[in-house]
Nucleic acid binder design. Structure first.
Length: 479
RNA sequence: UCCUCUUUAGCUCAGUUGGUUAGAGCACCUGACUGUUAAUCAGGGUGUCCUAGGUUCAAGUCCUAGAAGAGGAGCCA
């Protein structure tokens, strides 16, 4: 008989029929004659209760079969005789597929710390929390593709290995097949990359943007959704060395179109989670409230589902950098010098504390900041008519900070070339990028959205290492 | 990379001014119980007190160095 997925079974109203379920034991209770097993197969956060009658199946049938053991059970699906669940399966055939030795199996039916679970990331899928996160992560991936597909975007696979080191998005991981014990050197006593695999120095990508621009300037609307690698020594709750980034790039879009696209997309994905991940979100919401019980009421976060609804239904605040500086200069913490970095003049880079103030205290909603000073932003961003600001946009989310960074791109060849020259970016290595401005250049815009940062927001988790299955961070490449 | 904190049983944590045999809850083991809901009840402690030095009659506790983890900052998505 074919197994029924537990998610489908729990939706069923058809009782008094034989079913087969397979899964892992989450908990077991019972007495001398009967045991109750909570079985989970990953399809849903909910377990199905198996009733094991020892008289019928043999009194030793569950010896040593504890939490974590895997089962195949055939039996009658009936309305539950006890409270607490709608239905249960009275086991008729009970097969243990694999024992989990209770002496060494590290998971218990109780709360484990997230730090401990990070150390056993290979097993943490088996917890309610990580099961929920994993299902939501899938739904979010799916919603991203659906959003863009519905709007006629093409998904572009940009290269993971790149030779350009001009992207300026941080430290890179080098990719090489050279013998590090015996590195070949040239006459100038430099590493001889001519003998390396690609014949030149190569790295893992820090962004697919430049290549996405190439595609956008022919295909119109494109997006990438791939792994991204940054070799920064970042030890924070919102940085990973390996993360997934979504980078749409759209020909003919100006900065306002770009903001509209990013806001629509974030709202779409959040709404998708609300519509499709109800059970998991409810679990995570309860978990979060439980965790914050010890906090003062003022420090507690908004209830998760309420927070997601709020973001999905309300417009983001759109503010220029200049206006943000004005707000910050006049703010209480700035006047009372409560900020570590007091805002004095136009041109200052915004610190996390300033972004948090704007989002969490002043506007109390997601904020899109635009028109930053040119000198604190990347070379490819379009210069405004004022000659001193660029059409950059950062989207700041409560509790997370920057979730999106993007801009209208500089479409004018000469302006772009002079900015590259000022930053010592070699023109000849970037000829392919500049060619798009040489041949039929058009205004275009795009942004990068940190997928795991969106996951933090949607799940309400606070450490980015808990929303990716196998986190990569400095000194952390286990599993 | 910088600042702060933490590291004691499988897990979560307590351990007083340095003092004799290191504690609790859960898990686990043994037993009881005719249907449990984190089942309950009775009994059982399973330990490199992160590592290496040092101070002291005596160190889980104090000092130095290191490691790992957490939170914050920077870099950013």
């Amino acid at each position: 008989m074919k197994r029924t997925i537990i998610r489908d079974l729990l939706k069923s109203e058809e009782f008094d029929r034989t079913v087969v379920v397979k899964g892992w034991i989450r908990n077991r209770r019972g007495s001398k004659n009967v045991a109750f097993v909570a079985l989970n197969d990953g399809s849903t956060i909910n377990n199905v209760q198996i009733v094991v009658d020892f008289e019928k199946l043999g009194e030793n049938i569950m010896d040593g079969v504890g939490v974590g053991s895997s089962l195949s059970v055939e039996g009658q699906l009936i309305e539950s005789q006890g409270g607490g669940q709608k239905m249960e399966i009275v086991a008729e055939k009970f097969e243990v597929l694999g024992i989990a030795d209770p002496k060494t199996y590290p998971l218990q039916p109780k709360k484990h710390s997230l730090e401990f679970l990070r150390e056993i990331a290979h097993l943490r899928f088996r917890t309610n929390t990580f099961g929920a996160i994993t299902r939501i992560r899938h739904a979010m991936i799916f919603s991203v593709h659906q959003f863009f597909n519905d709007r006629g975007f093409y998904n572009i696979h940009t290269p993971i290995i790149t030779s350009s080191d001009a992207e300026g998005a941080g430290e890179m991981f080098q990719v090489t097949t050279l013998d590090l014990q015996n590195t070949p050197m040239n006459e100038a006593n430099e590493v001889d990359y001519k003998s390396d695999f690609f014949g030149k120095k190569t790295n893992l990508t820090v962004s697919g943007q430049l290549e996405a621009e190439l595609a956008a300037l022919a295909m119109g609307q494109v997006y990438t959704f791939g792994p991204t690698f940054r070799a920064e020594n970042s030890n924070t709750t919102r940085h990973l060395s390996e993360f997934w980034m979504i980078e749409p790039e759209v020909a003919f879009n100006d900065i306002v179109d770009n903001m509209d696209l990013a806001e629509d997309m974030l709202k779409y994905c959040v709404q998708y989670a609300l519509d499709n991940c109800k059970d998991d979100l409810e679990f995570l919401s309860k978990r979060l409230q439980e965790e914050e019980k010890g906090k003062k009421e003022a420090d507690r976060s908004m209830e998760l589902i309420e927070k997601l609804n709020f973001v999905a239904q309300n417009d983001f605040e759109r503010v220029t950098y200049t206006e943000a500086i004005r707000i910050l200069k006049n703010s209480k913490p700035n006047k009372k010098k409560k900020f570590d970095y007091v805002i004095e003049d136009w041109g200052a880079d915004l610190q996390s504390e300033h972004e948090r103030y704007l989002v969490e205290k002043h506007f109390k909603k997601p904020v899109i900041l635009i028109d930053y000073p040119a000198n604190i932003k990347a070379f490819y961003m379009k210069l405004n008519e004022d000659g001193k600001t660029v059409r950059a946009m950062d989207i700041l989310f409560p509790g997370i900070g920057e979730i999106v960074g993007g801009s209208e791109r500089e479409a004018d060849l000469e302006t772009l070339k002079s900015k590259m020259a000022a930053l010592d970016i070699p023109e000849d290595e970037m000829y392919w990028y500049l060619d798009t401005r040489r041949f039929g250049s058009v205004p275009h815009s795009g942004f990068g959205l940190g997928f795991e940062r969106m996951m933090l927001f949607v799940t309400g988790m606070s450490n980015i290492r808990d929303v990716i299955p196998f986190p990569r961070a400095p000194k952390q490449a286990e599993f």
